[in-house]
Every structure is written in structure tokens, then in C-alpha cells.
Lab assay of single mutants.
Amino acid sequence: TETYKYDDKREAEKAAEEFRRRGITVTVEERNGTWVLESK
């Protein structure tokens, strides 16, 4: 599991889209005002 942090929800979702395009499952969730993207 890799974790990436973003200040902006849009950025996180854009990154998530890129991962999914490569066939990687990711989750995006907000933690304490930071958007956390996790690849499984």
C-alpha cells in the first residue's frame, strides 16, 4: 500500500484517475483536512 497526500480534493481525484487508468485500485478519503490517496 502506498499513500499520497494532497491538499486539494481535485488534485487527489485527478491522481486517482491516473492510477485507475493503469489498472491500480486506489481509494481517496479526507483525513484531518488532507486528502489521502491510497493505492492497494
Rank of each mutant, 00 (worst) to 15 (best):
T25L: 13
T25A: 12
V28F: 04
E30L: 12
T27Y: 10
E29K: 10
D7S: 12
D7H: 13
K40F: 13
A15E: 03
V36E: 05
D8M: 04
T3C: 15
I24A: 08
W35R: 02
A16E: 03
E38T: 14
A15Q: 06
R10C: 15
Y4P: 06
Y4R: 10
Y6M: 01
R20F: 07
E13A: 05
A16I: 05
R10K: 12
E29R: 10
R20K: 09
Y6R: 00
A12D: 00
I24F: 14
T25V: 14
K40T: 13
K9T: 02
G23H: 03
T25E: 14
G23I: 00
E30W: 15
W35Q: 02
E29N: 08
G33E: 03
V26R: 01
A12P: 00
K14E: 10
K9I: 09
T25P: 11
G23R: 02
E18H: 07
E38F: 12
R10G: 11
E11S: 12
A12N: 00
D8S: 15
E30C: 15
D7M: 13
R31Y: 10
S39E: 12
V28K: 00
Y4L: 11
D7V: 11
D7N: 14
K9D: 02
R20L: 08
E30S: 07
R22H: 10
F19S: 03
K40S: 12
E11K: 09
R31N: 07
K5N: 10
R21A: 10
E2W: 09
T34E: 15
F19A: 04
V36P: 01
A16L: 06
E2T: 13
E38K: 08
L37A: 02
T27D: 05
R21S: 10
A12L: 03
I24E: 05
V26N: 00
G23Q: 02
E17A: 09
K5W: 15
N32V: 02
Y4K: 09
R22C: 12
S39N: 07
W35E: 01
N32T: 03
T1F: 14
Y6G: 00
D8N: 14
G23M: 02
A12R: 00
W35I: 03
Y6K: 00
E13G: 03
T34D: 10
T1R: 11
E17I: 07
K14N: 08
K14G: 04
T3I: 13
K5Q: 13
K9E: 08
V36K: 01
I24P: 00
E17L: 09
Y6Q: 01
R31V: 12
D8K: 05
A15V: 09
A12G: 01
T25K: 11
E13Q: 08
E11D: 10
V28S: 01
A15S: 04
A15L: 03
E2H: 14
R10H: 12
L37M: 04
K9V: 07
E2N: 13
V36F: 13
D7L: 14
E38R: 07
K5R: 13
R20P: 00
T25Q: 14
T25M: 14
G33Y: 02
R20S: 08
Y4I: 11
R10N: 12
R21V: 07
R22L: 10
R21H: 06
E17K: 07
R10M: 13
T34Q: 15
E30Y: 15
E11A: 11
T27E: 06
R22T: 04
T34I: 15
V36H: 06
T34Y: 15
R10E: 14
F19I: 05
R21C: 09
E13H: 06
T27W: 10
Y6P: 00
A12Q: 00
N32I: 02
R22A: 07
A16C: 07
T27V: 11
R10F: 12
E38V: 15
E2V: 14
E13F: 10
S39Q: 11
E18K: 07
N32D: 14
E17Y: 05
F19H: 05
G23V: 00
R31W: 09
N32C: 12
N32E: 11
A12Y: 01
R22V: 06
T25C: 15
A15N: 03
V26Y: 06
E30A: 07
T3Y: 13
R21W: 03
R10Y: 12
S39I: 15
V28Q: 01
W35K: 01
G23Y: 02
N32S: 05
N32P: 00
R21G: 06
G23D: 02
V36S: 03
R20Y: 07
T1L: 13
T3W: 13
T1C: 15
D7Y: 13
E30R: 08
K40M: 12
W35T: 02
G33F: 03
K5F: 15
T3K: 11
G23A: 01
E18M: 09
V28M: 09
T34K: 15
Y4H: 11
T3Q: 11
V36I: 12
T25Y: 14
R22S: 05
R22K: 11
F19N: 02
G23N: 03
A12F: 01
N32L: 04
F19W: 09
R20I: 07
T25D: 13
T3P: 09
E11H: 06
V36G: 02
G33A: 02
K40R: 09
T25F: 14
T3L: 13
E11Y: 04
E17F: 05
K9M: 07
R21E: 08
V26L: 04
E38N: 09
T27C: 06
E17Q: 09
K40G: 11
E29S: 12
L37N: 01
E38G: 04
R10T: 10
E11N: 06
V28P: 02
V28Y: 03
K14V: 08
I24K: 08
W35L: 03
